[in-house]
Design a protein around this nucleic acid. Structure first.
Lengths: 222, 222
DNA sequence: ATCGAACCGTTAATCAATTAACAATATATG
DNA sequence: CATATATTGTTAATTGATTAACGGTTCGAT
């Protein structure tokens, strides 16, 4: 699973930022492994894949690692993105800080409701979807964020693809179809809930709370 | 990876609902496999794990499968949940349809901003977080949805755990710590964006759009 | 300058997940 | 009723991912 590696790389980035903040300049495979919850050899193998070299007694350079991770995930190359669907979820994303170092830059926002068109959301004016095609073409947009109701999703996908987009971040709770060559990343929130439901099934007879001291790092996120 | 199976089960549910809507009552492992993008033997093994039996020429009963999937994921047993952080994202979730058949029922909403406390969001009155403890205790709440800023996350986690909660659905873009026995499901939206960024790196030189006919099912979601 | 510990890089071993293969069985057809 | 066929249940083979093991290097200590 290639996907598993990507998740690990993202996780490394997280922890490296934290270490850097603490003033550290190097880190060993052992330490990172402990934080992420995997074996140190896994970490070393990932770093070989990234073609970064460590030194026998000090470990790996944090700055160098960050650089390579950014480059591997293509986070420095800011790609133009548009968002379609300016409802509650759309607005939440527009206002959120996720766009920093994400590899994307939000360039325009669309909707089809007269009530929101023309309003300004976090500095971006909401436009009518009929302008989608021309904006995508003229502003070098390569990806779209889909926060419309499920029923409208496939229609908007068609428009996006027709305009030449190559990637879709889909929040609509439905499976969308796209031609080969167009990357679809689904963010199905319901699945997160269901997964939690399943996981809690096992924990039914939970012990009485231990003291807050013995908290452990959460390793369930990967 | 147990997680991979859970994702498949959720995916089966999706497609079964679609088939049911189309009037179908049975489905073969082959057909489901084609839809989900895996091998038919994988599907059959999952169904053996669910202890459902198929018939040699007709396949599996859709209704029976749905029942067993619901039961396996514990989606029928509605567990009480609270949401903390009534910002844009919180509101989006409160208004969204994800709670249907999710295994959870949203019972109360909290914030610490005077400007939103007391307001009614989709039928739920926003309360001050200081009431969190007593509400969790008195209304049999077992899980919490965290939509607060990263800086506030760990503090709220402490409150939730102190109140006796056993599961956390975390949207805060930070790693939170919880004692063993408390399930944490992280919904890191930035990771979705980064993954898309990586995936698009490979598609740089995309071919000219093929016609819309040869769309294929997206198999990248698992 | 030599020793020894800490850590990397790499290869081998283990473990897990997926797919392939096929005998068993129920149903449809004539 | 007999035969053909689609599809299951199950076991074996394969593939992939993870961990373990260990020789090789650097660096600090004596």
């Amino acid at each position: 699973m290639q996907r598993a590696r990507i998740f690990r790389l993202e996780s490394y980035l997280d922890h490296l930022a934290e270490l850097k903040l603490a003033g550290r300049t190097t880190v060993t495979s052992e330490e990172l492994a402990g934080r992420v919850g995997i074996s140190s050899s896994r970490v070393r193998q990932d770093f070989i894949y990234l073609q970064v070299e460590g030194k026998p007694r000090s470990g790996y350079e944090i700055g160098e690692l960050e650089m390579l991770l950014y480059s591997e995930l293509d986070l420095l190359h800011e790609k133009g993105m548009v968002l379609i669907g300016c409802g509650n979820l759309g607005r939440a994303l527009i206002f959120s800080g996720i766009w920093e170092h994400s590899g994307f830059s939000l360039k325009a926002v669309f909707d089809n409701q007269a009530s929101v068109i023309g309003s300004v959301v976090n500095g971006l004016t909401v436009r009518h979807v009929r302008e989608l095609h021309s904006v995508v073409r003229s502003e070098e947009i390569v990806a779209g964020c889909l926060t419309v109701p499920a029923i409208a999703a496939q229609g908007v996908v068609q428009m996006l693809i027709g305009a030449g987009i190559r990637g879709i971040w889909n929040f609509a709770p439905t499976e969308i179809k796209a031609p080969a060559g167009v990357v679809v990343e689904n963010q199905r929130l319901e699945q997160g809930l269901m997964t939690l439901s399943f996981a809690m099934k096992e924990t039914r007879a939970a012990p009485i709370r231990p003291d807050l001291e013995n908290y452990v790092h959460d390793a369930s996120s990967s």
